[in-house]
Amino acid sequence: MSRLLFASVFASHVLGHGHVSNIVVNGVSYQGWDVNSFPYMEEVPLVASWGTPNTGGGWPDSGYSDPDIICHIDAVNGEGSIPVAAGDSISLQWTQWPDTHHGPVIDYLANCGSSCQTVDKTTLEFFKISEVGLVDDTTVPGFWATDELIENNSSWLVQIPETVAPGDYVLRHELIALQGAHTEGGAQNYMQCINLQITGSGSAQPEGVLATDLYTSTDSGILVDIFKPLTYTIPGPSLIAGATPVAQATSAITSSGTAIVPGATSA
């Protein structure tokens, strides 16, 4: 493929699927990873989002055991973290999402141990804190979580369970497009990871699953024909105890914030 053609295909993927542009916590907006500019900058701003060279096909050609399924293709650790209290809701603002890409929205957390900035992503064990799938099946292909995201100004609200113990975590936010999922390998997973520093008085430390073990290509929620009447089963493990559905609403931005580096001390 020529460099010019590659650039054209790359740009179409970026414009076609979008990315999380900012993360809002209690009215404070934190910048996300800007795939349109950050990969080409010598000095990238400090952000909590994991870096990736593109937002094109988020589904690895080699299947769900490929490490690219963890936090996106060639994703590298975010250098900052966003402070959030257990019980708070986080608004994830997408630049856009195609209205032809129907499917679930799923959110996971994984404890990073001592540092999300240096953790080996292949060791992260994720537990599910939020899931929305087929919302209304009265029509075909139905009204899905991704359609709800679009109606909510391309934003999604997820709550950090109050029971989760304090610590450093990776939030894995995932949209799955199922328009081609009637054939094996046709589902498209788009995932983005964000470092969080969670505070609070919770004590729960739920068991997680390696991201490479979350799904298989034949799971009923992955291999499915959404253009036929169906009862949809969201893929992945069950929600943890204490996970609470959140009514979707746009989180008003009152100020801008800068990601922190946990453990860093000022000079």
Rank of each mutant, 00 (worst) to 15 (best):
V105Q: 12
T123Y: 09
F126I: 08
E131G: 10
D120V: 14
T139Q: 10
K128T: 00
A110Q: 05
C112S: 04
K128V: 00
G103E: 04
V105S: 11
Q117V: 12
Q117F: 14
N111H: 14
Y108N: 09
T138E: 00
P104I: 01
E131H: 00
L109W: 02
T100I: 15
D99R: 10
T138S: 09
V105R: 11
C116K: 04
E125S: 06
N111R: 12
K121Y: 05
G133T: 04
L109I: 13
E131L: 02
D137I: 02
C112T: 01
A110L: 09
K121V: 05
T100L: 14
T118Q: 11
A110M: 10
I106K: 09
Y108H: 15
D120T: 15
L124M: 07
S114F: 07
E125K: 15
W97P: 01
N111S: 10
F127G: 05
H102R: 11
D107T: 14
F126K: 06
Q117W: 10
Q117Y: 11
P141M: 09
C112H: 08
C112Y: 08
G103N: 03
Q96F: 06
N111L: 10
V119G: 01
D137P: 05
L124T: 00
S130H: 15
T100N: 14
H101Y: 08
L109F: 07
Q117S: 09
